[in-house]
């Protein structure tokens, strides 16, 4: 997994609440057995349905940071949604809230999810929609995000931060706890 420390990029403003994983990665593309080649299917249905969709707009579509609203990534558990986002070239998603499973899937694939208060999201959404060339800077080490000369601190949990910065995933940690898992199994009485 790539290490993540800092990121400077223009922003793709996706002005919607409840963006679900069926929108992000429609089921018809789920039929692969590999982990690659998903980037082109990102938001494919919305891209076809709506010619003015933000991912169809050349000025925006090259950004590496996605800005959206609340409950991003709801619906299906498909990790393919995260793979499609990262393989498209997006490395961070900034929203007011994320769905649980999506949140869990993201860090495992090196995708940084940043939660900011709704008022800031709304303000930045407007700014980004008005000006495609504005650059956002994300500094994960110091947990700071900078856009249109406004600096915000963001919360991020210690463990996921460590994983992203070092390029590690959960399995490395779980396997390092093998002893604890073995002794747990020995004491477990339930009939399973």
């Amino acid at each position: 997994m790539d290490k993540f420390r800092q990121l400077n990029s223009t922003v793709i403003p996706l002005d919607l609440d409840n963006v679900d994983t069926d929108m992000i990665f429609p089921a018809e593309h789920l039929k692969s057995v590999s982990k690659n080649g998903y980037g082109t299917a990102l938001f494919s249905t919305l891209k076809t349905l709506y010619p003015d969709f933000i991912f169809n707009q050349k000025d925006y579509s090259a950004g590496n940071i996605l800005l959206s609203k609340s409950n991003f990534g709801c619906g299906s558990s498909r990790e393919h949604a995260v793979w499609a986002i990262t393989q498209y070239g997006i490395r961070a998603v900034v929203c007011s809230s994320f769905s649980d499973i999506f949140y869990n899937n993201a860090a495992k694939n090196g995708l940084l999810l940043i939660k900011l208060p709704e008022s800031i999201i709304n303000e930045w959404m407007k700014l980004a929609l008005n000006n495609a060339s504005l650059v956002m800077t994300i500094d994960l080490v110091n947990q700071q995000i900078n856009f249109a000369n406004q600096v915000q601190r963001f919360d991020y949990d210690v463990y996921r931060k460590h994983c992203l910065i070092e390029g590690l995933d959960d399995l490395d940690y779980l396997l390092s706890c093998k002893k604890e898992i073995e002794s747990y199994e020995l004491t477990r009485s339930i009939n399973v």
Partner: peptide, 21 residues
């Protein structure tokens, strides 16, 4: 019982566990 992505299936298959908040 909860849904997980493919990575967590791997973690549980290999370690018997997942990491959860």
């Amino acid at each position: 019982a909860f849904g997980v992505g493919t990575s967590e299936i791997l973690y549980a298959m290999a370690s018997g566990c997942v990491l959860q908040d």
